[in-house]
Amino acid sequence: MQYQSPASIDEAVAALATIGGARVLAGGTDLLVQLRSGSASPAAVIDIKNIAGLRTISETAEGFRIGAAVSGAEITDHEALVRAWPGVTEAAGLIGSTQVQGRASLGGNVCNASPAADTTPALIAARAVAEIIGPGGRRSIPVEQIATGPGKTSLASGEIVVSFLLPKRPARSADAYLRLIPRTEMDIAVAGAGVSLTLNEDGTIADARVGIGAVAPTALVLDGAPGILVGTKLEDAVLEKLAQMAGAAARPIDDKRGTIDYRRKVVGVLAKRAALIAYERAKGAR
């Protein structure tokens, strides 16, 4: 196995394009496990952590830009990002242990394409846009278009996700992410829900977006959620409709973590609770 640690994105893209079967290495918390088990045996790993900009979080006029190789620990340590995006950052903070947080990257969590990836529903709710660079140039896509199924992405050969853009927040906006695991730490979501809300001055919801995870081959956008939530103050009947919509949208599997019925029920409960948390946060937000 070759190891390359390019200093520029162009070099990384060229290496990926020219070495057949090369894999991108960011935090390595998924890749090294695959190397050890033999489920991956790439001809080369291309370490993207020494590329300028891939390890930084910056705030611009457009919003927050998070480099794809930024680790969970770096995300949860970034006070301004945590203030602006409490849901995205709490999702990043739920992944694995302190040790895993020290390495595991945002880009890796999304591109590993686990249906249960915690950051993906939160990023979907946040309308995050992934910036991708490859042999064909640069393109930007909504984060929900990256994973196409368990372990599969829409990235073309040689393409690398280099950053995620979280758009500028209007006043009275906040987000939240909740997942269910059978224990308190160190487990994989049975179901997850991310909710981002913007409120009007009178406390009614002006804008809403909901993403759900671990209940379908990929995380899903709940397209009908704005229709239910906008104009309301999350009255009980509204929350009940949201829960039913989330359960109906889910296409979960039965496995050791939960049955289909349980996952449908739980994803609705999580969507409701995450909406309530986001709502309370938005009321307190600047």
């Binding site: 640690s5 918390t29 020290g102």
Partner: peptide, 15 residues
Amino acid sequence: VDGRLVCGCLMLAVE
């Protein structure tokens, strides 16, 4: 490693 707690088993030595 550089102030961050990590698992030695999840890091390549070349890194």
